[in-house]
Structure formats: C-alpha cells, structure tokens
C-alpha cells in the first residue's frame, strides 16, 4: 500500500493539478447501462462519463464487468449473439446504439487495442496501412507511406522497424507487437482509444514503454484502459472507475480514489484485501 502510494504520488502530481483546475468535458457519457448474456446480468446500471483527452482506468477483480463495459463503448459486444445492452451510451452527444448508427463509422472513431497483441500475419506496413486503406484515407502511395510513418512514430516503434517495414508483423517481440497494434489503431485517427489490459502479457520494460506511450497519446486521444495492475492505473490514469460484481462502485479522480476511497469495497481492493 505504501509502495503503491509512493509511485503514484511521484508520477501523478502534475496530472492532479491539471484535472482539478480544468474540469474537462465528457467525450463519452453512459447512463444506466446494463448488459446481460443469456439473461445473466454482467453489468448493472452503470453511470460513467469519459473525460476528453484524459486517461480513464477501469479497475476491479476478474469478472467484474470492466471488459464488458469497455466493449460496449465501440459495440464489439454486437458480435456476441446472446449479449444484450440496455441504457444509453453517447459519443459527443450522439447515442451510439441508435437505429441509424453504423458500427463501421463508430469503430472508425473509437479504436481498440486488445489484451493479447493481435497483428495481422502481414507485413508491418500492411498492418498499419490496413485501416487507412479500407477507409480511403490516403489518395496516393506517398500519403499512405506518410500515414504509416507517422503512426509508427507516434507508437514509438518507427526507430525499431524503419528498415524492415516488409517484415511480418508477427515476427516482432510481444511488446513491439502491442505497439504495432497501437500504431494500427491510431493510423485511422480515432477520437477514443479503448485498451483492454494492453500490458498483461508484457514484461516490465515493455510495459513501461506502453505506459509512456499512453501518456503521450492522451494529448490527442481520449483513452479508456482496463487494467489489473493498480500501480498501472495509478501511473497512467487521470480518472479511475472501480467495478465490482457488475456494478460501478466508485469513480473519481485517480488521486482521490487511491488516497481517500469513499467506499469500503474500493478501499479493500486497492489495499489488496480482495481481488
């Protein structure tokens, strides 16, 4: 507990100032969201706002519904036939579950990075270029090259792969693969990036690189990250939401959640007594 707090205070002090001085407008709002699989409630009446250009961390023990919540935000739950989503989720004021919403348009604006790095078994270039290609973002080979270079640079991968863009994406190391997936996600310039435990399969050095990257990315993108590591939540996020058994127990500025949790369950979790 003491260790966690030490790490947290060192890194967070700057962010705390920023968030308290300028309350940022919500990029996404969720009201009364409930999700059920085959009549099993996975998520109950969640109210949560996602602040623009901030990192929101979703924490909680396994099976608490944080990944389910994340996958509601870009409608990846649509793929599961038995999954039923109720409530209201808005992106920039528009209901994303409205009848005339096209999921492809939605996912173009809300990118996602998965728990396990999943590059396509194609070249590094093609991995990053795939999104811009299908959305017609580049009119020429030069433009496409520029997008790929820019995305790889923003993902902090360019220096490592610059001379082997034609090598297979799957030939990279685990951490590089995950950064490639981030480059692929930001190549189509989404507004929000959802990250589902992006570091769970990585070693501490690769994790540190990704966390550094998240800090840089939040200048341009709104980030929602699911994590099992409370140190990670403390290090990278501005806001934290604690889920427990399908309910949103507590939310607030990361600083406040970790130093003065209001709910006893939150306190028990962050101090390591449950989880």
């Amino acid at each position: 507990m003491v260790e966690i707090m030490d790490t947290y205070i060192e890194i967070k002090s700057v962010n705390v100032m920023a968030t308290t001085d300028n309350p940022t407008p919500p990029k996404m709002t969720t009201k009364n969201v409930s999700v059920s699989y085959d009549n099993n409630r996975a998520l109950k009446n969640v109210h949560l706002n996602i602040a623009e250009n901030r990192v929101t961390a979703l924490i909680g023990p396994s099976g608490c519904g944080k990944t389910t919540y994340l996958r509601c935000l870009n409608r990846m739950n649509d793929l599961i036939a038995t999954c039923k989503v109720e409530g209201e989720i808005k992106l920039g004021g528009h209901d994303i579950y409205a009848r005339d919403v096209d999921v492809e348009v939605l996912r173009r604006r809300i990118g996602m990075v998965f728990q396990k790095a999943n590059p396509f078994p194609k070249s590094i270039f093609d991995n990053v270029a795939y999104g811009p290609r299908i959305h017609g973002l580049a009119n020429s080979k030069e433009e496409l090259d520029a997008i790929v270079q820019k995305s790889l640079r923003r993902a902090g991968l360019l220096d490592e792969v610059e001379n082997r863009l034609n090598a297979s994406g799957t030939s990279l190391s685990g951490g590089q693969q995950q950064r490639l997936c981030i480059a692929r996600a930001i190549a189509i310039e989404p507004e929000v990036i959802l990250m589902d435990e992006p570091c769970s399969a990585l070693d501490p050095i690769a994790t540190a690189k990704i966390e550094e990257l998240i800090n840089e990315l939040k200048e341009r993108y709104t980030i929602v990250i699911v994590t099992h590591s409370m140190q990670q939540a403390a290090r990278v996020s501005d806001y934290t939401a604690y889920f427990h058994l399908g309910e949103l127990v507590e939310q607030g500025e990361t600083n406040r959640i970790f130093t003065a949790p209001k709910n006893s369950k939150t306190e028990a979790y962050i101090t390591g007594r449950i989880g």
Binding site: N74, G111, F114, N118
Partner: peptide
Amino acid sequence: PPSIREAALALGATQIQMVFHH
C-alpha cells in the same frame, strides 16, 4: 483465431472486408 477477426472489426472493417481480407 477470433483475435484476427476482432482486430479487423475494431478498425472499422465491415464483415465482408474482415472475411475476405483476413
């Protein structure tokens, strides 16, 4: 693996694009 399908869909690919590209 479903991860490849999810990767394509999360980039905003349509079902057809996901199936025939990947």
